[in-house]
């Protein structure tokens, strides 16, 4: 795979790291000259994916969340991985307002937010092994320049 830039971040599955992760990815994306709206979209999508890894993947036990970013052809690819319990039914998990943890007042909107704010979202998951979410953001400012 040809890429222009790459970064990888690993951190413990603590909720304090949600803000840390989204700020790091937003800072990395800054080199693509995004609009403020595009930066907000990325931050929000990353926050959702990292929160899912912490709450659902590790269920508040300690594990490692990995965030990898590539810049490929003026696009940002973000991969968020955990080695937690995995998702049994991905289609069900993606349904708006569905949550497996209503007692935690989760809104069930995580995947819908990711899919709305990013241009591509793919979910790979296996029960007992973990979950990997791959998201791509295309930047309008750069598309217009091409």
């Amino acid at each position: 795979m040809e890429y222009k830039n790459y970064m990888k971040l690993e951190f413990e599955s603590k909720s304090q790291n949600e803000a840390f992760a989204r700020v790091v990815v937003a800072s990395f994306a800054a080199q693509l000259d995004p609009t403020i709206e595009e930066i907000t979209d990325i931050k929000t999508a990353v926050s959702e994916a990292v929160t899912n890894a912490i709450i659902h993947g590790y269920e508040n036990t300690t594990g490692i969340v990995k965030v990898t970013c590539y810049i490929i052809n003026q696009e940002l690819e973000v991969i968020i991985e955990d080695e937690g319990r995995g998702i049994e039914d991905i289609e069900k998990a993606k349904e708006p307002l569905y949550t497996s943890k209503p007692e935690l007042e989760r809104s069930g909107m995580g995947f819908t937010v990711m899919e709305t704010f990013m241009d591509e979202v793919d979910v790979y998951s296996e029960a007992g092994l973990g979950t990997k979410i791959r998201m791509v953001k295309k930047f309008k400012s750069l598309i217009a320049d091409e």
Binding site: T40, K43, T44, E48, L104, R106, S107, M109, G110, V113
Partner: peptide
């Protein structure tokens, strides 16, 4: 300045 879907959960709750 920032809110993700956790905020929706707080308001709906």
């Amino acid at each position: 300045h920032f809110m993700d879907s956790s905020g929706i959960g707080v308001i709906m709750g």
